[in-house]
Computed example of a mutant assay.
Amino acid sequence: MKVNQDIKSTIDPTKVQAHQRKGSTTSFQQTVSSEKQKLQESQLQQLLKDLTAQGEKVARFRSFQDLAKYKRMVRQFMDEAVQNGLSLEQSRSWSMNGDNRNLTLIKQVDEHLIQLTDDLLDEQKSTIDILDVIGEIKGLLLNLQV
C-alpha cells in the first residue's frame, strides 16, 4: 500500500471561522455589557447631580412646584437604580419587646420625602432644617446606588 504525500489534510473552514467568531462574540458581549454599565452609572450620577440642584432650589424658593419636581426626580432615580440591577436590601430588626420589623431603604426615602413636604408647609422651619432633610434623602439615595 502506497501512501500518497500529495493528499493534503483539509480542515473545514466553517469550523475554523465558527471558533473564531465564538471567541470574538464573547469579548464583544463583555465589551457591550461593560459599556452599558458605565453608561448606567454615568446616567445615575447625572440624575443625582440634577437632584442635588433641585433640592437646593426647593430649599431656596420653597415652592410646591419645585417640591413636586424634586419628588418626581427622586422617584425617577429610584426607578432607574432598581431597573438597572441595583437590588434593594431588606433587613430584619428585633426590638427589646421581641417585635419583628422589616426595613427597606425605599420606605425610609418615602418617609423623608413626607417630612420634607411637612417642613416646607411649616413656614417656621429654617432653610437649614430643609437642607438637612434633603441631605438625608441624598445620603439614602447614595446608599441605594452603592
Results as ranks from 00 to 15, higher is better:
83 Q>K: 15
91 S>F: 02
10 T>G: 08
118 D>P: 02
142 L>H: 09
123 E>S: 15
78 M>G: 02
25 T>M: 14
41 E>K: 09
94 W>Y: 10
29 Q>I: 11
64 F>D: 12
4 N>Q: 05
50 D>T: 07
136 E>Y: 08
40 Q>S: 10
81 A>C: 08
75 R>I: 09
134 I>G: 01
37 Q>T: 12
102 N>Q: 10
7 I>M: 06
96 M>D: 12
53 A>W: 02
68 A>K: 07
136 E>N: 09
129 D>G: 04
62 R>S: 04
45 Q>G: 05
127 T>H: 03
39 L>P: 00
81 A>R: 01
134 I>V: 14
46 Q>D: 12
72 R>F: 08
126 S>D: 12
124 Q>F: 12
48 L>M: 11
138 K>W: 02
110 D>M: 07
108 Q>I: 12
101 R>A: 06
42 S>M: 11
41 E>C: 03
85 G>S: 00
56 E>A: 06
8 K>C: 04
128 I>N: 07
117 T>H: 09
42 S>L: 11
146 V>T: 14
110 D>T: 08
52 T>L: 11
84 N>M: 05
138 K>H: 14
32 V>A: 13
52 T>E: 08
102 N>I: 15
122 D>N: 11
45 Q>H: 07
44 L>I: 10
22 K>Q: 15
71 K>Y: 09
20 Q>F: 12
81 A>Q: 06
56 E>K: 11
51 L>N: 02
134 I>Y: 00
122 D>P: 01
18 A>Q: 10
1 M>E: 07
17 Q>M: 15
16 V>F: 03
139 G>Y: 02
68 A>N: 10
59 A>G: 03
78 M>H: 01
47 L>Y: 12
42 S>P: 03
103 L>K: 11
128 I>D: 07
67 L>S: 00
104 T>M: 02
44 L>K: 05
76 Q>P: 00
80 E>P: 00
60 R>H: 11
137 I>F: 04
71 K>G: 00
46 Q>T: 13
91 S>Y: 00
54 Q>V: 04
47 L>D: 06
102 N>Y: 13
3 V>R: 06
